[in-house]
Amino acid sequence: MTPQLIIEPCTKENAATIISGINSYNLSQIPAIANTWTPLDFVIKNESGIEIAGILSGIGYWNGLDIKVLWVAEAYRKTGIGSLILKHTEDAAREKGATVAMLDTFDFQAEGFYLKNGYKVIGEVQNFPPGHRRIYLSKKL
């Protein structure tokens, strides 16, 4: 007889169990180089103290810089601020032993920006969202 299984929304406690489970499996396959996730989150403020750019990223078990979000306020785009915070983050990651950076973006976001900053396309999903592309990029640090 097949056991009765239940699918339900995930709680924070469930998420912790899931993350612990995948981390345990991954580390049983390949030993960690770093002990834990090292956040590298930064913000740039203007002279009035208003946030005009920010990056959410970090270094994982195998010394890869994983860039989750990089944002620049519209009025400050194409001024070099995005490159400034990206370079600052890459330098901080290198100092902590990171050897590669990785991220994803969409064709309507920042593909050209990342290419200009030395990233290479390593894959993409066509027609997602419809009429666009999701692009995966990487760069050796």
Rank of each mutant, 00 (worst) to 15 (best):
M102Y: 14
K139D: 01
E74G: 00
N35V: 04
G123S: 12
A101P: 11
E124S: 13
T99D: 03
D41P: 03
G21A: 00
K139E: 01
E51H: 02
Q126Y: 06
T38K: 07
A53P: 04
Q109K: 11
A73N: 14
V72Y: 02
I135Q: 06
S138T: 13
L5Y: 12
W62C: 05
L103E: 06
I33Y: 05
F42L: 15
M1T: 13
T79K: 15
A15D: 08
V43S: 10
K68M: 07
L86D: 01
K96G: 03
T17Y: 08
R77P: 01
L65W: 07
F113P: 11
W62L: 08
G82E: 05
F108I: 10
Q29P: 02
F113Q: 12
S20L: 02
F106G: 09
A101E: 06
P3D: 13
I19M: 14
P39R: 07
A98F: 00
I81Y: 14
A92Y: 03
N23R: 13
V121C: 12
A92C: 12
Y114M: 03
G97S: 09
V72F: 01
G118Y: 06
A16Q: 14
E8Y: 04
I18S: 02
I30C: 10
F108S: 11
G123H: 13
N14W: 05
G60P: 02
S83A: 14
S48E: 14
I67P: 08
W37P: 05
T89N: 03
P9V: 07
A75S: 15
P3E: 13
I18H: 05
L84R: 13
S83P: 01
G118I: 06
I52R: 01
F128G: 01
Y61V: 02
N46V: 05
T11M: 08
K140G: 09
A98Q: 02
T105N: 11
T2A: 11
M1E: 05
G54S: 05
I55P: 00
A15M: 15
A92W: 02
A16S: 09
N26P: 04
I52A: 04
L70R: 10
T11L: 10
S24Y: 05
N26K: 03
L27H: 09
S57L: 00
D91T: 12
D91Q: 13
I52T: 05
E8P: 03
V72R: 02
T79V: 09
Q126C: 04
V69M: 06
V121K: 15
P31V: 10
G131R: 08
G112F: 04
L84K: 14
I7D: 05
S57M: 00
F42G: 03
N35A: 15
I52P: 01
E90Q: 04
P9Y: 05
V100W: 07
I85Q: 07
H132E: 12
G54M: 00
S20A: 13
